[in-house]
């Protein structure tokens, strides 16, 4: 949502993996352009030339163009493939481990050993190797950050890892790339890459329990607490995202809208109007309750 600038692109190369693959792309494109020009050129000449016998026999045409040309091109491609594969997704020392679970249709994000649980917004330090653990307890999803790295699926019953390093600070668009049902289109997330110092500050803030803001009891006693956790309170539900520091996040509902008071109120009032398939029910709340809950959540920095 906040990436109004240009949108994502696999050519940005802001991660160690995407950066290497930008190189592979230009090689593939270069070869493709040469092949297309040569072959389309031959087709055009074949069509417009004056009819007459070829100085090259049929077998030579096929051997040269149909066998030798592809073999040469494919050898180059094969070397590039092996080279890129060998350098990517390999274990590095001092990795930061982040555990991501694909839910319908949002992302549960945990930092093992810290107790930090968040959703739809992954903070990482620039320059430090990452190990993103990927799991699903429902259907298959796919974790994709076009600017940073290729996809890895989140498959129920199988743990996967994606390893890369962010090269450039910034806020990156993440998407679910495997069809996962009704709201596949609105299962986005953000990856915020920042300096190690800022990351540590963020992590420390997330580690703390929730601020004891007004409205807490209304929240705890409402249906909200049945599905959501706010650490340090009696709300310990696990069906929906952890809301302990909801106000510190940039977006809501799987990166569907910006995190503003008005959007938050609209989302709580009628989730399905924003995200038709959302599993969060519209809970009947009095106006006063709604005011209190919105105010409370807005205070959870």
């Amino acid at each position: 949502m906040l990436l109004a600038a240009a949108g994502p692109s696999i050519l940005h190369g802001d991660g160690s993996e995407s950066h290497r693959l930008v190189g592979v792309w230009w090689l593939l494109l270069g070869l493709a352009v040469v092949v297309v020009i040569v072959v389309v050129g031959l087709v055009v000449v074949a069509l417009v030339r004056r009819p007459g016998p070829s100085s090259l026999g049929d077998d030579w045409w096929i051997a040269a163009g149909g066998v030798a040309l592809p073999v040469v091109v494919l050898l180059v491609v094969a070397v590039a493939t092996v080279d890129a594969t060998a350098h990517l997704r390999i274990r590095k020392p001092d990795e930061l481990r982040v555990e991501v679970v694909g839910r319908r249709w949002w992302w549960d994000v945990r930092y093992p050993g810290t107790g930090v649980v968040t959703a739809n917004e992954i903070h990482v330090p620039v320059g430090r190797p990452l190990d993103i653990g990927l799991d699903s307890d429902n259907v298959t999803h796919s974790f994709w950050l076009p600017d940073l790295a290729g996809k890895v699926d989140l498959i129920p019953g199988q743990h996967n890892d994606l390893r890369f390093t962010v090269r450039q600070a910034g806020v990156y668009q993440g998407l679910c790339a495997e069809y996962c049902g009704l709201e596949h289109a609105k299962m986005h997330f953000l990856l915020v890459a920042e300096s190690p110092a800022r990351f540590e500050t963020w992590l420390a803030g997330q580690r703390a329990g929730a601020l004891d803001a007004t409205g807490r009891t209304v929240f705890e006693q409402s249906a909200c607490a049945g599905c959501h956790t706010v650490r340090g309170t009696e709300a310990v539900g696990t069906k929906g995202p952890d809301l302990t520091h909801l106000a510190s996040r940039q977006t809501l509902a799987g990166d569907t809208v910006d995190n503003t008071a008005a959007e938050l109120r609209a989302w709580i009032t009628d989730p399905q109007s924003l995200k038709r398939g959302a599993l969060m029910p519209a809970v009947p709340l009095s106006r006063a309750q709604l005011d209190a809950i919105v105010a409370y959540l807005r205070g959870l920095r």
Binding site: E17, L21, V24, L28
Partner: peptide, 9 residues
């Protein structure tokens, strides 16, 4: 090309 396919698949 497997690693490139990771991006575009």
């Amino acid at each position: 090309v497997m690693p490139f396919d990771w991006q575009v698949t």
